[in-house]
Amino acid sequence: YGSPFKFLDYAEGVGQVISGEQPTEQDKRIKVPLSAPDALAVNTLGQLAENPRIVALRNFIMGWHVSYLSAEDARGQPEAGPQEQLSKTGDNLANVIQHLSEEYPERLESIFETLRARVPRIENVTADPMPDGRLLLQIKDAPFSKPVMARFASDGTLKMLAYLVLLKDPSPPPFIGIEEPENFLHPRLLYGLAEECQKATEATQILVTTHSPFFLNALRPDEVRVLWRDESGYTQCRALGQDEKVQAFMNAGAQLGDLWMEGQFGVGDPLTREGMPVQDGGKP
């Protein structure tokens, strides 16, 4: 994030702060007692206006949006009322569509246009208030004259719609985390979803965890990190952008997902040394 503050000694209940963009010998280390051993300095000090940089860091972290969208939750009929941001599970999808239709109709049409390109025959989506005060989410399919309720739509259609609403948010959070987007989506749709994630990085930061080679096929080596657990059980990380062999394959026209399935990463294969790096010579 680039904050000039360094926080140390959380376990001892003390937040140690060094101020300044480039700390020097003249800077002073200030020890600030915290309320409890498990208290975080960034949370405690970030509530004081006298620490503007820590306030900015705290607000940045609190603005993170971690998403695990569920098609079943998106089928619900929530109480009517526009909401600006999609929830973690997407259970307020109808509310966010209502908000977009009222405040950002052009952005909503852009979402529908992308949805039509990704899911054939989908025309549009509406979120209409019902007499009992709830919202009815309906999806219009081209072959039929009337829309169908969201609860009868396919899981893949609802999830793709929810992802597009999240990624095309007019005021996106500073960081978006997406967990396993491949669940309930047709493999052929994952390449396009990865492209939408790449476009969204122009306005926010995005971290996606996936086990799908189809999603990986749309990415560049410098966009990918491979994780595995070492012999001690700790998570390790390898940046593919630093792998010369992988880059050579890519320059020759290969795709990352295919290289992964062929074992060319040398790490991250659960059937080869439990995902740990292969031994010298490439042998398991």
Rank of each mutant, 00 (worst) to 15 (best):
A218T: 10
F214N: 06
V119H: 09
A117H: 14
A56F: 07
L256T: 09
F265W: 02
A49Y: 08
L219E: 00
E231C: 05
F152Y: 14
V224D: 02
D222E: 15
I97A: 01
G76V: 09
R220K: 15
Y10F: 12
Y163H: 15
Y234F: 09
T201Q: 10
T201P: 08
T210H: 00
V165C: 05
P105Y: 07
A194E: 00
E25Y: 11
F152R: 11
K168D: 10
H99G: 10
G253T: 09
I139Y: 01
G257S: 01
G20H: 02
E179S: 02
T201R: 13
T44Q: 11
E274M: 09
S3K: 01
N95W: 09
F5S: 10
P187Q: 02
E84P: 04
G233Q: 12
L189P: 09
M250N: 03
Q16T: 05
T44W: 10
L135K: 04
A150Y: 02
Q83W: 09
E231M: 12
R118S: 13
Q77S: 14
H186V: 08
F265D: 00
E50T: 12
E113A: 15
E202K: 14
T114N: 12
P270G: 00
T235F: 01
P37L: 01
I18L: 15
Q83Y: 03
V267S: 00
P270E: 10
L227W: 14
T272M: 14
L45C: 05
L240A: 00
M160E: 06
Q98V: 13
N183W: 02
P131I: 04
V208Q: 03
S145N: 13
N92I: 13
Q26C: 04
A218L: 08
R188C: 08
I61K: 04
E182R: 03
E180R: 03
R118L: 15
P277N: 12
N124L: 04
Q22G: 07
V32K: 10
N43V: 15
I178M: 03
G257M: 02
V208K: 01
Q83I: 02
T126R: 04
A56Q: 15
V66D: 10
I139Q: 02
Q16D: 11
A94Q: 06
L164T: 11
L190V: 06
I18Y: 10
Q85K: 05
G156L: 06
P270C: 04
S212C: 06
P213G: 01
P37A: 02
A200K: 05
E196P: 14
